[in-house]
């Protein structure tokens, strides 16, 4: 079954680029262009992973993350931050909030793909162990 990944960024081009790369690797990609949109899409589409920008108007990435982590249904969806904010303080903040990864722009595609693969491998392992 194809894994479903949600890409959230207010920059349409970035979403486009990430989408092309992920689709090239055989993932199913859904998009959102702001925080509120993202929450709606998540409820509807139930993605397996979320790639989240931080600096977005109104509801930023941290807010989205906080919201997701506070609700039972969305609590365990892994999140990777993909952002231009490169300060260590922000990175820590993101990781403390429960994100699996923190990648700064401009990003290396391999880096992003590696991280996604690792996350899926790990979750599969966890499921196997449970079974």
């Amino acid at each position: 079954m194809k894994k479903k990944i949600l890409v959230v960024d207010d920059e349409i081009d970035i979403v486009d680029i990430v989408k092309i790369f992920l689709e090239g690797k055989g993932y199913e990609v859904v998009c959102a262009y702001n925080g509120e949109d993202a929450l709606k899409v998540i409820k509807k589409e139930r993605p397996d992973l979320i790639i989240l920008d931080i600096l977005m108007p109104e509801m930023d990435g941290f807010d989205v993350c906080r919201k997701l982590k506070s609700e039972k249904e969305t609590m365990f969806i892994p999140i990777i931050f993909l952002t231009a904010k490169d300060e260590l303080a922000d990175k820590w903040k993101g990781l403390f909030m429960g994100a699996f990864g923190y990648i700064t722009k401009p990003f290396e595609e391999e880096n992003l793909l590696d991280k996604i693969e690792k996350i899926f491998e790990q979750s599969e392992n966890d499921q196997n162990n449970e079974n």
């Binding site: 920059e11 970035i14 680029i17 790369f21 600096l55 231009a84 904010k85 401009p106 990003f107 595609e109």
Partner: peptide
């Protein structure tokens, strides 16, 4: 500085991203 860095990085990410897409042969 943080604003500038964000504003510079975002288009740069797009440039690099699209170039990489071309290179990947997609």
């Amino acid at each position: 500085v943080s604003l500038v860095s964000h504003e510079l990085r975002t288009p740069l990410t797009s440039i690099k991203g699209y170039a990489s897409i071309f290179l990947s042969g997609k």
